[in-house]
């Protein structure tokens, strides 16, 4: 293997790793606040790519109508439950109405407008998933929550197939520039992916460290009961955590959708690898998750180079001792 090849593989692994890390962060946020392993995040990623691609092609994406319908159902549910507040009205009436209007009258084929609109359409699916799937079972066992998440994955993959068909789609890249580093051509999009990922990690640190909402989320994560006692609404925190995760997923979809075509069923495996990274991060630590994400990305890239047919066998078999080591280390450190 020449240094050139190695660098090219590394660059490839880093780009994938950045996306895995974004998803890992979403998973970490949701898990720490709600105990849900949000497997379907990868499906939201795919929905985001497909939504933006359809907008950029001049169409009106089915996800918009689905959002309107679900938001209406959520609103009716709140009204029936007598819990209507200004916030629920804003979230489930004004927001979807505004999006629909923006889609209808806005310049939706404009790449940037489409991207922002697409992210705005997909993000509410996070809180909706919480509202309709996980909140009603918030006290269930971890395993039951995990199974719910798996089931939701199949539902969302089905939605993707029904709304967008089986073919993959790409979105316009943020930049088509290419940077030459010696013999190595680095696409501007790869750089943008890594840069945005880094910015987002920084942004989330700030969000959890400096904002009231972030602190409340952190408080709910560390002590559910305590948070309730000081007046933090756990349901509200859950909705916010899911919104953040869905936002991160949608953003990832726009980023990676410019590098590679994404189909309705592409997202699950990306999400799975984000899950791997999150677990390596012990479902708690962002730096460790970042290391895990890059590790998975680079390992995959190297495995594909050496023995592509055996890649999954090798990468996932290697993962087993890593997990064993992590689990034992965590247990050793966790003893009182």
């Amino acid at each position: 293997m020449t240094p050139f090849v190695f660098l090219a593989l590394l660059q490839d692994g880093l780009t994938s790793g950045a996306i895995y890390l974004l998803l890992a962060m979403g998973l970490l946020i949701v898990f720490s606040v709600t105990r849900v392993i949000f497997v379907p995040q990868g499906d939201l990623l795919a929905l985001a790519t497909l939504t933006v691609a359809q907008l950029q092609a001049g169409g009106v994406p089915g996800t918009l109508w689905l959002l309107d319908a679900l938001a209406l159902a959520a609103l009716l549910g709140e009204i029936a439950g007598g819990r209507t507040t200004r916030r629920t009205l804003a979230a489930w009436l004004i927001y979807p109405a505004a999006l629909t209007a923006a889609c209808w009258f806005g310049p939706r084929t404009d790449p940037w407008f489409a991207m922002l609109l697409g992210i705005a359409i997909v993000t509410p699916f996070g809180p909706l998933a919480w509202r309709f799937v996980f909140r009603p079972a918030a006290d269930a066992s971890l395993l039951a929550l995990l199974i719910l998440a798996m089931a939701l994955h199949f539902v969302l993959a089905g939605v993707g197939m029904v709304l967008f068909g089986p073919d993959g789609a790409s979105v316009a890249p943020l930049t088509s520039a290419t940077l030459m580093a010696g013999p190595l051509a680095i696409s501007g999009q790869s750089l943008a992916v890594v840069a945005i990922c880094a910015a987002l990690v920084g942004g989330l640190r700030w969000f959890f460290g400096a904002t009231l909402t972030g602190k409340a989320l952190r408080a709910t994560a560390s002590d559910r009961l305590g948070a309730r006692l000081v007046g933090i609404d756990a349901a509200e925190s859950g909705a916010r955590a899911f919104a953040l995760a869905a936002f991160v997923a949608a953003l990832s979809g726009v980023l990676i959708g410019a590098v590679t075509p994404i189909a309705y069923d592409t997202g699950f495996e990306i999400g799975l690898k984000g899950f791997v990274a999150a677990i390596i991060g012990g479902l708690a630590s962002y730096p460790a998750a970042a290391a895990g994400a890059v590790l998975v990305g680079v390992l995959e890239s190297l495995g594909s180079f050496w023995a592509s047919a055996w890649r999954d066998v090798i990468v996932f078999a290697l993962l087993i001792p890593v997990l064993a080591w992590l689990s034992l280390r965590q247990r050793a450190a966790g003893e009182p």
Partner: peptide, 29 residues
């Protein structure tokens, strides 16, 4: 089929310098 990158496989092919590449795949992937 659901991979998002084949950079590594493409690099491998490049190092072997084949005159042509034959693909055994389908649809958009």
């Amino acid at each position: 089929r659901t991979d998002t990158t084949v950079q590594a496989q493409a690099l491998k092919l490049m190092t072997l310098h084949p005159d042509a590449v034959m693909m055994g795949n389908s649809a958009t992937p």
